[in-house]
Computed example of a mutant assay.
Amino acid sequence: MPSSPIHIDSLDDPRVRHYRKLKDKVLDREGQLFIAEGENVVRRLLASDYQTLSVFVAEPRVAGIADVVPAQVPLYAASPALMEQVIGFDFHTGVIACGRRKPAMSLDQVIAKDKPNLLLVVCGEIANAENLGSLVRLSAGFGADAMVLGERCHDPFWRQSVRVSMGTIFKMPIVRSQNLVADIGRLQREWGVEVAATVLDPAAERIAEARRPRKFAIAFGNEAHGLTGEEIAACDRKVTIPMDLGTDSLNVSIAAGIFLYHFTQVVGLGKA
């Protein structure tokens, strides 16, 4: 049974306090909450196994969303003028929701010991929230089994990341590592995963010649500095995209799209 809309006439209403332009860190402290912006993202949140605390929409959007909001989830509605004061109308286009994070997951919970084929995306220190959201979307789109985020990586549940991920974050298993170098070692020893570091190094293996084993992880580094020397040393091999005309690098999400396409669509499984 769909939820009936509850009219809101002021952002001072305590029922919508989480939508008053709160900082992501504040939301996290108030119960590990996050904001989902836009109808498609909100629909994916509602269809996932994440808890949705409430949905908040502009009144003209009620008819288009009410049928997918369960009766136990409050559906708040306000005038378009009032909704424009919430974060930024251009981002959420009148449909927004508040969800609750799940408990943190470990490598052991995410990766089956007996899984014959495995693709992981490892992120050393992605500093930009939108880049991280794009990496989540790419990882999901190319069929990665999970992502492993380094200890200095941005929070993937900030609203910019959730928005850019287009809600794929609600399906993608994510492990927040406390020691990425140690966890790379665990992947190699305990799961037999080969880890490739993506680098800007003309001496590294060129992507066009690179193959992959059945259990494989691709590691991406910081937007400005790449992977650390210690992280690269922990990996089994180095791969690179050759650059011309003095270009020093690609945006990390563009590079990730090229690497993931190559290793999933061009060479496929077990062609190492």
Rank of each mutant, 00 (worst) to 15 (best):
V41C: 10
D9L: 03
S253C: 10
K102E: 07
V41Y: 02
D248V: 14
F34W: 11
P60W: 11
P80Q: 08
F216A: 05
G88P: 08
R20P: 02
P60H: 09
C123P: 00
F259S: 01
K215Y: 07
R29M: 11
Q109N: 11
H18V: 01
C123H: 02
A210D: 02
D90V: 11
S165D: 04
T52A: 15
V195D: 01
E59P: 00
V193N: 04
S249G: 10
I258A: 11
A234E: 03
G141Q: 07
F56I: 05
G99P: 06
K102W: 01
I87Q: 08
F170C: 04
V266C: 06
F34L: 12
I126W: 02
V110Q: 06
P173K: 05
A234V: 12
V193C: 10
G268C: 09
K113F: 07
A208T: 12
A127C: 04
R29D: 12
E230S: 12
W191D: 06
M83E: 07
S139V: 09
V162R: 01
I35N: 00
R189L: 10
Q160W: 01
V42G: 00
C235R: 01
V86N: 02
D24Q: 07
K171C: 03
L119H: 05
A217W: 00
R163L: 13
D183A: 06
V69R: 00
G270M: 05
A129H: 14
S134P: 00
A272R: 12
E84H: 11
E59A: 13
S165T: 08
A204S: 10
R237W: 03
S134H: 02
